[in-house]
């Protein structure tokens, strides 16, 4: 177990050794994730942890995956995807080419959910989805698009709650244990590494999704990243945050119009 006052040194060590800057992440979450990692890997003290970080770079990937919280779902918050359908896509339809950025895409669940929606609306062929994450492991997994069947029932329920017309299985090839996403859904998606803390504007996109990522940042970093999104949007472009995240306290708040206050969808107006 480590304590709050060990955090600074650990964060410093990670930055020096591996170049990742976690200094503006939520300290409460960092502490919990690091202690969780230590518990899972049977590490007792802060000395053990430091030793591992310095001497075992192989294990750093496991560490990183535990720290960044890659937890996601297909059609997480069905009401959100419903709102995209009614409030955002009709507007984007008029563009000849639709660019979408899914930032903090985890293992691709959110991105493939979007692709399925776009396909059902007959928009996928003129869309380009850019899906990014800090974790290279997450990007690799996203590209493969293989998911355990364990949560499929839940995903299926989500899909139906947001108005899905087919059966979610239609979009996968499954065996007893795993399902792999159909390759035609992958065609318009580019999965690539991008670190919201360190990297700049990625690509101008008419819709940016960044859901359940900002809660892991402190207020300063939240604001910095929201400015990055502002810079990445054309005028009238849309920004979608997680259900419990908000623009309200950020410096760009008055440059956006609230499109759906429950689902946290905003439109850039100036």
């Amino acid at each position: 177990m480590i304590e709050f006052n060990d955090l600074k040194e650990i964060v410093f060590l990670i930055e020096k050794q591996y170049g990742y800057d976690f200094s503006d992440y939520s300290r409460a979450s960092m502490l919990r994730r690091i202690n969780r990692f230590m518990e899972i890997s049977n590490m007792g003290s802060v000395v053990d942890l430091k030793y591992e970080l310095i001497n075992n770079s192989v294990n750093f990937n496991t560490f990183l995956n535990e720290i960044v919280v890659n937890v996601s779902e297909f059609f997480r918050d069905p009401s959100f995807f419903k709102s995209l359908k009614t409030n955002v896509f009709p507007y984007l339809e008029s563009y000849p080419k639709i660019n979408i950025w899914s930032a903090g895409c985890s293992f691709g669940e959110e991105t493939y959910s979007l692709a399925i929606l776009l396909k059902e609306l007959d928009l996928l062929h003129k869309s380009r989805l850019y899906a990014t994450d800090i974790s290279s492991n997450a990007i690799e997994k996203s590209k493969k698009g293989i998911y355990s069947n364990k949560s499929f029932k839940e995903y299926s329920n989500n899909y139906f709650s947001c108005g899905g017309k087919e059966s979610l299985n239609e979009y996968f090839i499954s065996d007893g244990k795993k399902s792999i996403i159909n390759s035609d859904l992958k065609k318009e998606i580019l999965f690539t590494r991008h670190n919201l803390v360190a990297d700049g504007v990625f690509k101008e996109c008419q819709l940016i999704l960044c859901r359940n990522v900002l809660i892991y940042f402190n207020e300063d970093l939240q604001d910095k990243v929201l400015n990055l999104f502002y810079d990445s949007l054309p005028i009238h472009g849309f920004l979608a945050l997680g259900k419990k995240e908000t623009l309200r306290f950020s410096s760009v708040f008055d440059k956006f119009k609230e499109i759906d206050s429950t689902e946290k969808i905003y439109q850039k107006i100036k």
Partner: peptide
């Protein structure tokens, strides 16, 4: 809120966590 864990920061700010 449903679907989130709640954490406390040292500065007494609340943090949500979707892990």
């Amino acid at each position: 809120p449903a679907n989130y864990h709640l954490l406390l920061e040292e500065n007494r700010h609340l943090s949500l966590d979707s892990s």
